[in-house]
Nucleic acid binder design. Structure first.
Lengths: 137, 137
DNA sequence: AATTAATACCACCTTAAGATAGTATTAAAT
DNA sequence: ATTTAATACTATCTTAAGGTGGTATTAATT
């Protein structure tokens, strides 16, 4: 019950970027040092986030990345679904393909409530609603 | 947000075994065919479950496995924690080591409630309280 | 025009989970 | 005693996530 590494990094970076002034440019070198994330791995993640239109990339000497939207318009679910599109679908806890009211898996009834709560939390929590402290170890 | 393969298999097998009469012996060959789980992989899992005292192994020609306790005494949390001991600890959603009221991660406040709900569900749901249908694809 | 500092791309390395293969051990049935 | 059918153990293969390295491209500065 944990987000995978890539998603964790993405959330941490975007949280960090949403703490500053709007339109602020951040370069990956600085971000990687500040958040203690491997520079190379982080460039990869940033490129993906950029293609997903969560951030805007500006190339060239004084380039960098900035948020593409206001922090209040980027929800956790938006970030997670970039790397894990399944999050939005009703995936079965037990990995059994179709798991709905017609074909219930063994844990369907128990899981349906917590799952909805998490879904709701991920949809309602945006970058401006989260604590910007302790973004690294 | 899904249980890993090994844990999924373990839950499915134990669910299946808890559907029959108490003390019924099951051999891995039959279980693997019935639940469509690789035989070799399943023997591995059964050995672990046996060492964790959730099932009892009986070797030899008419051997097999049977539940070590009543279905009502085996909760999901007991099964999961055999393969993922961290489940019982308060692991940070963002993978930041210490995440408690003193050192909150960015998502601490949002995650604390759903996490508690899941924990509760996993503790309260036992093998006799779950649906035994649709244990395979 | 050359340099520099940034992102973008492509290929590869590493690690752990998932899965397989072969053999050893156990104990009932013959 | 031998055979047989079960679990137990050890080593290896496969795959995907995580991570690294090198080079190309872009664009401001000099």
């Amino acid at each position: 019950m944990q987000l995978n590494n890539t998603v964790q990094y993405a959330i941490r970076v975007l949280s960090y970027m949403s703490a500053g002034e709007e339109e602020t440019l951040y370069n990956v070198k600085a971000l990687s040092e500040e958040l203690e994330i491997s520079y190379k791995f982080l460039t990869k993640i940033m490129t993906v986030l950029s293609k997903a239109d969560l951030i805007v990339s500006i190339r060239g000497r004084v380039g960098g990345f900035k948020l593409a939207k206001k922090p209040s318009q980027i929800a956790l679910i938006d970030i997670i679904s970039v790397f894990d599109p399944n999050i939005k679908e009703d995936i079965c806890l037990l990995g059994l393909g179709e798991c709905d009211s017609a074909h219930k898996c063994a844990l369907h009834d128990q899981w349906i409530k917590p799952k909805a709560d998490i879904q709701k939390m991920l949809e309602e929590t945006t970058l401006d609603g989260i604590d910007k402290n302790n973004l690294k170890f």
